[in-house]
Design a protein around this nucleic acid. Structure first.
Lengths: 115, 115
DNA sequence: CTGCATCCCGAGGGATACTG
DNA sequence: CAGTATCCCTCGGGATGCAG
């Protein structure tokens, strides 16, 4: 197993798609169910609006989520996980399992489903 | 599947361990066989000595690789993958597979074994 | 409510010169 | 050969204010 840093390596490009600071968190919420912009803001208290907007845009651009605007007043926007996004869930499970088995003081996302 | 950003989430902590700029590349070389400092430098032409040193240190601290210095003249240091490090290989394969199936213009690390 | 624009700061990371 | 030390700069990302 080798990687040529000059090529677009699948592992590295995959990491780029979802490993930004808040993206795993956003995705994990959307795995469960669609959320509105404001809901995500409340669920992730430390994220700034700028970063939330930016990450949502990038996730849309990469086809992992979809944006569903409703032309109501006041406006309402729902973010929904896409099929491509769903395909990341098993990847997250693998990462979660590795962390639980190899790191200290980490909290499994699987456990959090139960609670 | 939910993540509380206030906890040490397994997925996020796992990403922190190996998703720094050059770490996947370094690890992928060490998966194959042990390498000396200078070899890695030649294999990864764009990395600076500072970053190579820093990332190797962090990978050691996280127990993914081991440093084997030989008190010869001139000095010689080998970096070897650890058992914990090896356990990341299946994780890399999952990331690689997802990238190959879902991204354009990426190059599989698996293919590169064959070449 | 859902964003965009702007300003600003600190960390990540590159280049280079020096050392045991 | 295998680093360390220093300088510097870009960019991720936070805070705040404005707009549709």
């Amino acid at each position: 197993m080798r990687m040529d840093p000059k090529q677009r390596c699948a592992v590295i490009e995959t990491l780029k798609v979802f490993s930004a600071k808040w993206k795993p968190c956003i995705l994990s919420y959307l795995f469960t169910e669609s959320k509105r912009y404001g809901e995500l803001q409340r669920l992730i208290p430390n994220i700034s609006r700028k970063m939330l907007t930016q990450h949502l845009k990038e996730l849309c651009a990469d086809g992992l989520i979809e944006r569903k605007p409703f032309p109501t007043i006041p406006p309402k926007v729902e973010y929904v996980i896409s099929e491509k996004g769903k395909s990341l869930q098993p990847v997250f499970r693998v990462l979660n399992t590795w962390g639980v088995n190899n790191l200290d003081n980490v909290c499994s996302t699987e456990e959090m489903i139960a609670t």
